[in-house]
């Protein structure tokens, strides 16, 4: 089946330029294709017509690399639950719909061009302790560290985060707490993360604040927008970890 849509896309030629919305008819679009394939088709047309195509980030197109993302009709990654933009298919739209497409925006995420944003702030937070400090070669035999199945599953629930930034874009406070909480939870739940537990929580939270991300206001927009369905329980766990470290530990 084919449908026709109106695309209102926010264009901006560089980080310091002024942005504006441009309106494009989609032309007849097969409902079998993905959202990004629709943008591909638009870009092919713009190229042939001598206009610059819309810059957008994307890579794996199977919902795991975390590169893609845009706000569609006010919702990061579009209207489908637990679905990245690349996995959103056009069968969820209907003839005549207007789609407003904007980049993820937050103080800590600089806009580069059109729909492309800079998410290196996430790297900076992970750098402060989003890992277990173990040099290659010094690991003990794998089964000497038993991990209860349920614990491993819960850790995995946090570890699934793809670092796309939708949580920040969805939050009224531009908070990155779902992202940070997911990593802190994963490592706090597992015995391997134990030795650095306090230091990690303090350092990552500090960096997150420094970079200009806001605080959690329990709106739960992040959870609703998260393409991996990461629960705000992770934020609660992060807060616990932070409090525990701040009050009970001797880490600075």
């Amino acid at each position: 089946m084919k449908i026709n849509l109106t695309l209102k896309i926010r264009r901006q030629s560089g980080p310091d330029e002024k942005g504006q919305f441009r309106t494009y008819p989609s032309g007849p679009i097969s409902t079998e294709i993905s959202f990004l394939e629709m943008l591909d088709i638009l870009n092919e047309r713009l190229t042939r017509e001598g206009e610059e195509p819309v810059a957008f980030d994307h890579d794996c197109r199977e919902g795991i690399c975390g590169t893609c993302g845009a706000v569609v009709n006010g919702i990061p990654h579009g209207p489908e639950k637990k679905t990245t933009l690349c996995q959103l298919h056009m069968r969820h739209f209907k003839e005549g719909d207007t789609l407003v497409i904007e980049p993820f925006r937050a103080r800590a995420l600089k806009l580069e061009k059109d729909l492309v944003v800079d998410r290196s702030a996430f790297d900076q937070i992970i750098r402060e302790g989003g890992y277990v400090s173990v040099n290659t070669g010094s690991a003990p035999e794998a089964n000497t560290i038993p991990v209860p199945q349920n614990t491993a599953e819960q850790a995995m629930n946090g570890a699934e985060c793809i670092g796309c930034g939708a949580c920040v874009a969805a939050c009224p406070n531009a908070s990155a707490m779902l992202f940070v909480g997911a990593k802190i939870s994963q490592l706090a739940l597992l015995p391997q993360g134990g030795p650095e537990r306090s230091r990690r929580a303090l350092a990552m939270v500090k960096k997150m604040d420094e970079l200009g991300f806001g605080n959690c206001g329990n709106e739960r927009e992040c959870e609703a927008a998260c393409p991996k369905g990461i629960s705000i329980r992770n934020i609660a766990r992060m807060n616990r970890e932070f409090l525990r470290a701040a009050i009970c530990s001797e880490e600075e």
């Binding site: 277990v132 173990v134 794998a142 089964n143 038993p146 199945q149 994963q186 993360g193």
Partner: peptide, 23 residues
């Protein structure tokens, strides 16, 4: 191959586990 698994587990890679906690 075996040392890779050791390394990944030590890093906190949440591999699937049996009920007893083994990989």
């Amino acid at each position: 191959s075996n040392r890779i698994i050791d390394q990944a587990v030590a890093q906190g890679v949440p591999f699937a586990r049996d009920y007893g906690g083994q990989l």
